[in-house]
Structures are given as C-alpha cells and as structure tokens.
Amino acid sequence: MNIFRLAGDMTHLMSVIVLLLKIHTIKSCAGISLKTQELYALVFATRYLDIFTDFISLYNTIMKLIFLASSFSIVWYMRQHKIVRRSYDKDQDTFRHLFLILPCLLLALFINEKFTFKEVMWTFSLFLEAVAILPQLVLLQRTRNIDNLTGQYVFLLGAYRALYILNWIYRYFTEPHYVHWITWISGLVQTLLYADFFYYYFNSWKNNVKLQLPA
C-alpha cells in the first residue's frame, strides 16, 4: 500500500458516501444517472468475485464490502425507494447499458492476463469502470447545469482514478515485475474521459460561478 493508492481509495469512498448522503438526506436523485449507478454495481460485482476466495487484507475485504453495499444501495434507492424514485429523470437518462457492456465483455475475452472466468470478469470490470461514467456525463450535458453535490461526486470519482495512476507509477518504480498494461491503459482512458469535466468544473470553481456544461 502506498499513499497514492490510499488517497485514491479514500477519494473513491468519499465519492460514494457523498452520493449516498445526498440521496438519503434530501431524498432526491435529481441529476444522477441510474444507468451509471447500475454499471458501477456491475463493476464491483464482477471485480470482487474473489472476495471470499482470495484474502488480501482486512482493509481490502472491508473496502470491497463497502463498495458493494454502497453501489447496490444507491441502485436500490433510485429504483425502489418510493420518494427518491420520483425524482429520477428516466426520460433524460436513456443511455443503453448494452452499448457499453457488450464491447467491454468482448474486449475482455480477447485482452486479458489469463483466460479464466475470474480473470476475464476482472478485466471486464476494469473496462466497464472506464466507461461507466458516460451515461452520467451525457445526462449532465442534457440537463446542462448540475448541483454541487453531483459535481463533487463526479470530481471525486475522476480524482480517485487519477490518484491510482500515480500509484501505478510509484509501484512500477518500486516493485520489480509490477507491470499491468491492461489496468494502466484502462485507468488512463477513464481519467481522460473526466478531463473535459474537470476543465469546466475547475473553471466554474475558479470563477465562482455555477457549473454550466456546454451543450
């Protein structure tokens, strides 16, 4: 474990906590893409298949449980909770899951470190995580402006992966044979997808104006 990875995990944890708190306290999910939340639940479900077979550390297991519980409870809130679900904008949140899931699955079948079910699922979860934010970014473009909490959520989500890139660089230089091209490239693509959002988020923060995304 290094400081970059710990900071990344904490930032990731903060992003889901911010989102859960927003939904739980104001009982609204306005501006949140259910599609993205469902994709994240799938990312964690396929990434953490080894939660009961490979014990890495207490920290690792606890964090996996937190991410699984939080992502599935966010989906539950948005689909089942009688008050929250009313604020879900299903007419605007129309991104098709399959357009992201199928290509990631096909890619994972061809590009993986080992052709085993767990490894292919793990690789699939990496590719899917890289693009899972797209429905949310599309929804933000459509609704044109976003409230602070959603902005913070997307920002933290992007920042966590950027910190992971620092972690991979650190590990590459400190651990011999630590080479994971698949992870690195998908993590880089994921962070680049946030780049334009970061640009608008930073400008709105600097000029102290409400975050407006161009149409």
Binding site: D54, I56, N60, F67, E113, T116, E119, W122, N167
Partner: peptide, 10 residues
C-alpha cells in the same frame, strides 16, 4: 503455469 497472483488493488 503460475496461478495469476490475486489482484491486490480495489
């Protein structure tokens, strides 16, 4: 062949 070491990152 070596069993791929478990992924230690979240």
């Amino acid at each position: 062949d070596t069993e791929t070491e478990p992924h230690d990152e979240l």
